[in-house]
């Protein structure tokens, strides 16, 4: 037993050596959404506070696209988290940047709550579609409108804020933007441009904003493909938490293997604080 424990210690020490910065996924790691805004995952409020006290660098790296950053951060603050808007990397501002650079006028297939992020965009006579997690906004009629915009274009451009398969709310798993992005790709025979995890540019932007190199950073998320796989492709280590959308089969994923699996954010932070500087 003692030998096994020593081996486990050595393994974690090796996995976490030299970590200076943390990228935290939010939904499913800090909290689970649901009626009334959602609930904090036990131990996560204190875990964020402990990271901040430790002097490690921290950035929230989310594909949240159903709410504006202001609303989203306000919700997390009400749940007790120490978080501010300028600590959050999220896809809507990145998408706006792309739209501006390329002179694109979007048809927005997005939730009403995220519309303020696109306030400055010209949405008349659209020449592209931006799709984000819309929840009930994914009606047949709305998806069909986006489809008609795309088929009417000579070079259809579809920009997707993330491509997650599903996320967890308190009453169960919910379809995310990914399935609807795939639906439009199939309907129009096109490939979407993904802004957000797992796109490398998105992780790189988060690293730059945090000021830590990839090899000194660890990502903590509940999505084996988007969070863990996406980070690893950028040379960032990644842990998967067994909260949020985690399913036991994730630990045997055919393509992605996390650098470690932990029960929740609190355990991840315990281990990081114990081993990161050894």
């Amino acid at each position: 037993m003692a030998a096994a424990a020593a081996a486990a210690t050595a393994a974690w020490a090796q996995r976490l050596a030299g970590v200076r910065g943390l990228l935290l996924d939010v939904s499913g790691v800090l909290y689970d959404g649901g009626d009334g805004g959602g609930t904090a995952i036990p131990g996560s409020v204190e875990a964020v506070a402990r990271i901040k006290r430790s002097g490690l660098k921290l950035r929230f790296c989310t594909n949240e696209s159903q709410k504006s950053r202001d609303k989203f951060v306000g919700l997390l603050q009400r749940l007790g988290f120490d978080i501010s808007v300028n600590e959050v990397t999220s896809p809507a501002p990145a998408a706006c940047q792309i739209l501006k650079e390329r002179g694109l006028r979007p048809y927005l297939l997005v939730h009403d709550d995220v519309l303020p992020e696109f306030d400055e965009m010209d949405t008349s006579n659209p020449n592209c579609v931006v799709i984000a997690d819309s929840g009930d906004g994914f009606s047949y009629q709305n998806v069909n409108k986006a489809f008609r915009v795309l088929v009417s274009l000579e070079n259809p451009v579809l920009i997707s804020l993330g491509k997650g398969r599903y996320y967890k709310e308190s009453d169960g798993l919910m379809l995310d933007v990914g399935p609807y992005m795939k639906a439009l790709e199939y309907a129009c025979d096109i490939q979407a441009e993904v802004v957000g995890k797992p796109a490398p540019a998105f992780f790189q932007a988060a690293l730059k904003e945090m000021g830590v190199e990839a090899h000194e950073t660890i990502m903590i998320g509940d999505d084996i493909v988007s969070d863990v796989g996406g980070a690893q492709r950028c040379g960032i280590r990644a842990l998967q938490v067994r909260t949020g959308k985690f399913r036991p089969c994730d630990e045997h994923h055919p393509e992605v293997k996390a650098d470690g699996y932990v029960n929740d954010l609190a355990e991840a932070v315990d281990l990081i604080l114990q081993y990161a500087n050894k």
Partner: peptide, 16 residues
């Protein structure tokens, strides 16, 4: 005009 058939929604569910 044109309207989405079942294929896109089936593809979405397959992906999810």
């Amino acid at each position: 005009g044109l309207a989405l058939g079942p294929g896109p929604f089936i593809t979405g569910l397959e992906y999810a």
